[in-house]
Design a protein around this nucleic acid. Structure first.
Lengths: 218, 218
DNA sequence: ATGTATAGTGACCGGGTGGTCATTCGCTAT
DNA sequence: ATAGCGAATGACCACCCGGTCACTATACAT
């Protein structure tokens, strides 16, 4: 039995896009529970019944919109992994981070939804979506570190798990700092332009590479 | 004119405490908008009108409860700064992080409110509270780095702002990772006991101190 | 012109919300 | 006993919510 098309999928593309954009905006601004279907349909100029015909429930709208976006995450990561194969770990991490910045710039509202989901236990689909995202980005970094370890780019005595953790969280937090105020202490990142982002990132990666200490390891 | 006591401040301490605890729990579980005053009063067994007499509005409840907690943050930080004066930077950072872990263990619901506030632009009082908190912890770390810099504990060529940023966000994220699932890639921190926390933290600080690279800086 | 399938509609429902206020309660001083 | 007063009450209000469904509009095949 071929999957029969939903009402929503029969709409012309322009209408579908308008609805997706407006719904994404609403969830990005208000999170899930505060988001209002009434507001969505008012801004779209369509009847409330229509939206429920398309997606069943409010949660269904979120699942469709966000699920779609999560799928788009994998492609650029895979590409980077292939393009930079065998290269320097920190250069690869740099590429990943900048790819993240590109994604956020291209889909800022999707990223806002992700951030709200992160720290709100009540957010529907939280566990499912976050698991998917973490699996994607976590496994990726893990393999990068593994390869770097094997090619002797890293100190042999380090705790691999902690190294992955440090890189993972640093990248994640770096992107958050650019997008959200109050996360970088002196606001040296929030809202920065591309040029500044790259400079700061290089500086940060240098610290990770060589450490902060002025005293050589004995 | 002496500040005249509010109705709430005239209550006996046990009742005041019960109310504070219950309100904190409600906000911690549901955030601000989803939190329900009806639920609070039902669980407390008091009339809804009473709560509004005490605090005026729902937001007033939050301000009272959370504002009180934020004030308590400063004392332990100041103490650590004094007790460890002149000591090794990383040891001082270690102390601060563990103090943070202690605070979270003692006031888990306050920390949950803080986390929800962090990434929700609609949260009332967000800007005011976050500014206060960041000012407290940010300036603190800044002074630690400054002192370490002057006593030659750090490489002289590093970007001070980025060093502060790296330490600040690493500590912050470390605590988040312990408290929240999905933030540490392979769940090596979430829900860990004190012993594990200390071991991991030492490992992490070692990475920050000496860097990840196996190739010495030229 | 008629039938059929699909898309679109919006008044309506039950329920929860933050907030109000006229009233009652409980204690203390006289 | 009684007067006075702050604490406590809960029915009530206007509002907004997600979701429903009987109905209409449109397009195409016959």
């Amino acid at each position: 039995m071929p999957p029969q098309k939903t009402t929503f999928e029969n709409l012309d593309q322009s209408k579908r896009e308008r609805i997706m954009i407006e719904a994404t905006k609403e969830f990005a601004e208000y999170g899930f529970h505060q988001a209002s279907v009434n507001r969505m349909v008012n801004r779209l100029g369509i009847a409330k019944g229509s939206l429920f015909k398309y997606f069943g429930t409010k949660q269904g709208i979120l699942e469709y919109v966000f699920g779609h976006a999560v799928t788009m995450l994998k492609a650029p990561l895979k590409q980077i992994r292939l393009e930079t194969e065998g290269g320097d770990l920190f250069e690869r991490v740099r590429q990943v981070t900048l790819a993240g910045a590109d994604f956020i710039e291209a889909h800022p509202n999707i990223y806002r939804i992700y951030l709200k989901m992160l720290l709100q236990e009540n957010f529907p689909m939280r566990e499912r979506f976050l698991t998917r995202i973490r699996a994607t980005s976590g496994k990726f970094l893990h393999s990068l570190v593994q390869e770097a370890m094997e090619s002797g780019q890293l100190r042999s005595d380090i705790d691999t798990d902690m190294a992955v953790y440090l890189l993972d969280t640093t990248v994640d937090r770096f992107l958050q700092s650019v997008a959200v105020p109050f996360l970088d202490g002196d606001s040296i990142l929030h809202g920065a332009d591309r040029q500044t982002i790259e400079t700061r990132l290089d500086s940060l990666l240098d610290l990770l590479r060589h450490g902060l200490s002025g005293i050589p390891k004995t």
